[in-house]
Simulated scan of single mutants.
Amino acid sequence: MNEPVREEPPSRLVTLVRRKDRPVCVMLPGAGGGLNPYLRLASHLGRHYSVYAVRAAGLVPGEPPEDSIAAMAESALSALGDRSPALVFGWSLGGTVGWEMCVRLADRGARPDLVIVDSSPLPRHASAEDDERIRKLIVGGLGPRPDEHTVARVERTFRAQAHALAGYAAEREYPGRALLLMCRDADDGISGRTVALRRWCELAPDLRTATLDAGHYDVFEPRHLDRLTGEVDAFLGLERES
């Protein structure tokens, strides 16, 4: 009697730009797990890197979300397989996960460059109103008539991610090179930017910081892309195209 074939879960590693024999860049998404905000930046980084992203767990049928930053970091490393990143990039939640990834990579003798955009190393404190506002933004990004099952998975994933951020505080230093880009807006994209910045400076002895004239949720829009890529290129020592 033949045993039923077990389907393998879909890979969480998404290829954004493949460049043979180029160093690896991995991008980690913000809350909700969508990768669309990264596509323009991935194209820019693809001049020098093979660019991958690790999608959030919980976005496909039958896949549970992860509710701790440690679990997200470990599964992202697992998704990379034998690819050793030279650059880790994360925005918001993704920056926090990227930090934990790099701490673990440092334990293994690797120190990739790390770029964090508007993330906090401190526990997230948010009201129900804050969460509802963010939930609407995430669901709104799914299009005008998203499938109800897709919406349910995205909402469940966001709740797990919010829980993970509420229970997380970065404790260990990362000895590699890091760039922290903070947004200038006064909304609650992340709370306590000044305190967060102070803590990042304590944790990262080789940290460069800059401020972006953009809001937390529009930092990847075309009108802000030149400033964002300029800061990243300067940190990485990449020449700007004329």
Rank of each mutant, 00 (worst) to 15 (best):
Leu59Gly: 02
Leu179Cys: 06
Asp131Arg: 15
Val97Cys: 05
Pro4Ser: 06
Arg124Ser: 11
Asp130Ile: 03
Gln161Cys: 04
Gly189Pro: 01
Pro37Lys: 03
Leu181Lys: 05
Val232Asn: 14
Trp200Pro: 08
Asp82Leu: 01
Pro37Asp: 01
Leu39Val: 09
Val54Asn: 02
Leu207Phe: 07
Pro175Asp: 11
Ser68Asn: 07
Phe220Cys: 06
Asp107Lys: 13
Gly141Leu: 12
Asp226Glu: 09
Leu16Ser: 13
Ala196Phe: 02
Val24Asn: 01
Leu180Asn: 02
Pro23Ser: 05
Glu8Asp: 10
Ala126Leu: 14
Leu80Asn: 07
Gly58Glu: 00
Phe235Thr: 10
Ala126Asn: 14
Leu13Arg: 15
Leu80Ala: 05
Arg172Phe: 08
Tyr52Phe: 09
Ile116Val: 11
Arg177Ala: 02
Leu41Pro: 07
Tyr168Val: 10
Asp67His: 14
Arg108Gln: 10
Ala71Gln: 11
His44Met: 02
Leu225Thr: 06
Gly58Thr: 05
Arg208Met: 08
Leu105Asn: 01
Ser50Asn: 03
Met1Glu: 11
Leu165Cys: 04
Tyr174Val: 09
Arg55Gln: 06
Asp188Ile: 03
Gly143His: 04
Thr150Leu: 10
Pro222Gln: 08
Thr157Gln: 10
Val51Cys: 12
Pro121Ile: 06
Glu231Met: 12
Pro144Ser: 14
Gly189Val: 08
Cys102Ile: 02
Pro37Phe: 09
Ser84Asn: 04
Ala210Thr: 13
Leu225Ser: 12
Leu236Arg: 12
Glu129Val: 14
Ile69His: 06
His224Phe: 14
Asp226Tyr: 02
Asp226Arg: 08
Gly230Arg: 04
Arg12Gly: 15
Phe220Gly: 04
Ser120His: 03
Pro144Ala: 15
Arg133Lys: 15
Arg184Pro: 00
His224Ile: 11
Pro61Glu: 01
Tyr217Trp: 14
Val151Thr: 02
Thr211Ala: 08
Leu80Glu: 02
Leu114Ser: 06
Pro29Gln: 00
Arg145Tyr: 12
Met72Ser: 11
Leu181Pro: 02
Met27Ala: 12
Val5Ile: 15
Lys136Asp: 14
Met1Asn: 11
Leu35Gln: 05
Pro205Trp: 07
Val5Gln: 13
Gly95Arg: 03
Arg124Gly: 06
Arg223Phe: 13
Val97His: 03
Glu129His: 15
Gly230Lys: 08
Glu231Lys: 12
Ser92Met: 10
Asp226Trp: 04
Ala70Ile: 08
Pro4Val: 08
Phe235Gly: 13
Arg55Ala: 11
Thr15Lys: 15
Trp91Ile: 01
Val88Met: 00
Glu3Pro: 05
Tyr38Phe: 09
Leu180Glu: 00
Met1Gly: 12
Ala162Val: 13
Ala164Trp: 01
Arg133Ala: 15
Glu221Ile: 12
Asp218Val: 10
Ala152Asp: 09
Val88Ile: 05
Ala204Leu: 14
Asp185Ile: 03
Pro205Gln: 01
Ser75Lys: 15
Ser50Leu: 04
